[in-house]
Design a protein around this nucleic acid. Structure first.
Lengths: 255, 255
DNA sequence: CGACGGAAGTTGGCTGGCCAACTTGGCCGG
DNA sequence: CCGGCCAAGTTGGCCAGCCAACTTCCGTCG
């Protein structure tokens, strides 16, 4: 079996991984079945065993397969959204669920960074930051309030975007601002007066909060954000194993 | 520089990773400094470049360093708890924070699995499961209610444990029950009457919920659990990058 | 019939080497 | 003085091979 066209960008092992991912998801190896041996896959794809192992490491990190020395790999689950871009971008996430994302800029101010902001964005004292407050909607209904602090270099670009632009990350990428690494913290807070007004809930009612600090490949912080979701609209899901872990966000439907 | 003693179990690349992790955390390369080249590290540790790359992949997944083709790696953050075991075991997590974990078994019943439980634990209709309800404490104060469903093979062992045993996962491991992969879902729920009584909060007050399904290396589910935390006691933190992601749990202190 | 032992199969780990893609910084020319 | 080009340095990716550790299964022996 050959690797057709360009099922995944660039590297060979990504193509192999994509192909295997699809095979697993479509049930080619059975529900809890076993994968072919690494050597067999290597021959099948016409690549070295090392390349196959790189591909399998990706699937392992996504929780699709287990692996244990001595036995063939076992299919664990199937079909997981690609985690990173979906977690980072509200817009991307919403679209992948078939919902129509919306956003309304409530305020955008420019002011000196306070101590906490300087710490998070690694800025010199006196540096000015851009602070946005946005209400995010899913097919018209408000679900989230987003407070984001940008360093000057990024904020200047954000300030020039039209106020009704849906996605922020996409236009930023075109200006050379790359989002590659993020730290997230998830907890519960109570709604402030502003939150309550925007989300149409009672003041003090619980909200699911995600704090996020994003950096580019050089380690420079590009964003510090605090998102507050109405309960029942989202849940965060993570797979982890002794080897690695992967995160995604999804809508709440089941219980 | 040689790799002293047994800083990490088994494999060479883990030892190198552990050593580098410590060096980064102790600030040997500066706050946002750059790491030595892979080749230099390989020579330093007396291993091949491939092994160094395996080690660096671990640090990358933990969000300690970035990497980009063409330039040296950059130190991103520092000091992250080892995610998997800490997320899985309340006991392990509590101890790593210097708190004294406690637990009290409220109830343990054996009954036929319902449809949802059969689905999660992949059981045949009519199979019996063991269901536990435990109150978890941190240095004496209640923080979490844990409802766990075990398949028969595991439940039989759990039922034989003394009711005041602190850790469940440790004795299970000694009986050959291995926890290697887990899927987590995090959201917000309101406290039931039971929750409220055990956690000394009002009924209907918000709780941070973590649902968890754990499997062993063969893909067999060994546990399905639902933990409900009092707000302000924990937060979940995740690092993710274009390459991979890592998860941990930590106490809430800052804001 | 059951327990034990060994062989075959499989993954984990490590080496050494090679080339491509990319970044950075310095040199040189306009 | 600025801009572009070029070379060195660095990471990404791939290959071929080797051995160790572990699991599974089958055949043999008691």
């Amino acid at each position: 079996m050959a690797l057709d066209q360009d099922r995944a960008a660039g590297s060979l092992y990504r193509k192999v991984a994509a192909d295997l991912r699809e095979a697993i998801t479509s049930g080619s190896f059975g529900e809890a079945g076993r994968l072919p041996a690494e050597g067999a896959l290597a021959e099948q794809y016409g690549v070295s065993r090392g390349t196959v192992r790189q591909a399998l490491a990706l699937l392992r990190a996504d929780g699709l397969v287990t692996s244990r020395r001595g036995t063939r790999r076992v299919v664990l689950g199937s079909a997981r959204v690609q985690s990173f871009s979906e977690l980072l971008s509200f817009t991307h996430w919403a679209r992948s669920m078939g919902e129509e994302p919306g956003g309304r800029l409530e305020s955008l101010v420019r002011r000196p960074a306070d101590a906490a902001e300087r710490e998070q964005l690694r800025l010199e004292p006196g540096t000015e930051v851009y602070v946005t407050l946005r209400l995010r909607t899913l097919s018209g209904t408000p679900v989230m309030v987003e407070r984001t602090v940008y360093p000057p270099r990024v904020g200047e670009l954000v300030a020039q975007l039209p106020p009704d632009v849906v996605s922020h990350t996409e236009p930023l990428r075109e200006h050379g601002i790359l989002f590659t690494d993020a730290d997230h913290t998830i907890d519960v807070v109570t709604a402030s007066a502003d939150d309550a007004r925007l989300l149409s809930c009672r003041r003090g009612s619980p909200l699911l909060r995600e704090k996020r600090r994003t950096t580019d490949p050089t380690g420079t912080p590009v964003e510090w954000s605090q998102d507050r979701y109405l309960p029942g609209t989202v849940a965060f899901s993570i797979h982890n194993s002794l080897a690695s872990s992967a995160l995604s966000r999804h809508a709440r439907d089941e219980d």
